[in-house]
Nucleic acid binder design. Structure first.
Lengths: 247, 247
DNA sequence: CGTTCGTTTGACGGATATCAATGATTGTGG
DNA sequence: CCACAATCATTGATATCCGTCAAACGAACG
């Protein structure tokens, strides 16, 4: 339909590499959690983490693995999934730069509850369990910011819960797209682009429906001019209309 | 069926009343968030909150109300719901003693995202926005514990998300009951009792289905001896079987 | 004892999951 | 640069789960 050759979604550079020290500092300074820190404190935090580069599609850790590390996304996108009954994976959250991946609870004792997979070329800052606790202890502002961030994601998760639990499949897909747009949407020629390479199957897993149903709904909306879409990307042309369909 | 006259669920005392000072202190000391505090610190926290009694069925606050207060459940059960498209309310979480209700994020600036309703006679400890921030600042251990608690609830919310997004309605109901049992289940003669007065409509709202479907599923399981149930209560006789149905 | 609220059961139709096949896009190896 | 394979998307046909409407029943409460 759109004779576009490449996905408009930003996939990052071709090959993964460890983030440069400069990028690390920029990522730290930019993360909401560490925003309140001055240069000296940032250096202290910086010294306690290591940077890890991950290629698109690569698994960071699997549900059930011992939760040895806490990760902060520096660049890229990471999806968090949980294995469902039939072996399929349900997408329960999406992490952007600044977001925390991995456990904050009883770090080091238990297992990761979710599988984390890089959707794009991604750089992660990795903290050991005790190192991160030490950061929280030495820099109470970070603990407050982390609490705010976690509470915000809890609120988002509940919003997702509401969206998935109610209405027709069309309404659920609509709600899912709007939530994604609010989180990772960037304005582009083709509309409000969801800057994440999500397949129809991923969207279906988020909306609690099937690949085919998602495809049908998107086809209808595309025909009506509400969206544009392609292989592993969607852009909202008329966000308000979609939001209206969601409720 | 069960010739029982009263619900086995603990509904609390008949009429609401402000918690006694002794109860307040016990509630504070028992809450995971404040467990690390010594007596002096507890007294400091105690001085910053007021106790509020709420009757069963009464609304604590509605979604959209200005989020002026943060509440900690001392005794009782509170359900958090979000209004859905058609006016129905979707149950997104259940708060037990020690749990936080209300916003931790940008406290005082924005509106409550959920409606909080007491399911039983409930006592809440109410903090003003700035008072609670001050507690977090003066007692960093509380901030760490609050972070842990919030992260744990985030994990639970994601588990709920996975459960609601996948499988048949029977599987979703099964998963919902098991999650509830893990959270508020108490062993009784009639089985592992869900110690919360939830109607079929509440369960349906959690499982993403309808009252009638929940009723049908429960009837079948009751006939098979997997559960016992009555007006606004359910007990799992064979938890493992139900868990097996969920996956 | 009547009213209200919650639950149960039935019948029915439509939304949607499932099965199946084709078409489009991307990346790979010749 | 082209052809191939692999992955993803689309579309159709069909069966069925389950949401909707409707009615009756039981429990709790004043």
């Amino acid at each position: 339909m759109a004779g576009r050759r490449h996905t408009p979604v930003n996939l990052g550079c071709a090959e993964p590499h460890a983030c440069s020290p400069a990028l690390r500092r920029r990522a730290l300074a930019g993360a909401p959690m560490f925003r309140a820190l001055d240069d000296a404190a940032l250096a202290d935090v910086d010294a306690r983490c290591t940077a890890v580069g991950v290629a698109a599609g690569e698994v960071v850790h699997r549900a059930g693995d011992p939760a040895d590390w806490l990760l902060v996304v520096a660049t890229g996108r990471v999806k968090l999934t949980r294995p469902a009954v039939d072996g399929t994976e349900v997408l329960v959250d999406l992490a952007r730069p600044g977001d925390v991946v991995g456990m904050l609870t009883q770090l080091g004792e238990s297992a990761y509850p979710e599988t984390a997979t890089a959707l794009t070329t991604t750089c992660l800052l990795r903290f050991g369990a005790e190192d991160f606790r030490e950061v929280l202890r030495r820099h109470p502002e970070v603990a407050l910011a982390a609490l705010d961030a976690t509470a915000a994601r809890l609120t988002e998760a509940r919003a997702a819960l509401r969206a998935v639990a109610a209405g027709t499949s069309e309404q659920r897909v609509a709600a899912t797209l709007v939530r994604l747009a609010d989180r990772v949407g960037v304005p582009r020629r083709e509309g409000l682009l969801l800057d994440v390479p999500l397949t129809r199957a991923d969207l279906a897993a988020m909306a609690g429906t099937t690949t085919e149903t998602v495809s049908r709904v998107l086809s209808r909306w595309r025909a009506d001019g509400l969206i544009t879409s392609g292989r592993a990307w969607v852009a909202l042309v008329d966000r308000e209309a979609i939001a209206g369909l969601a409720g």
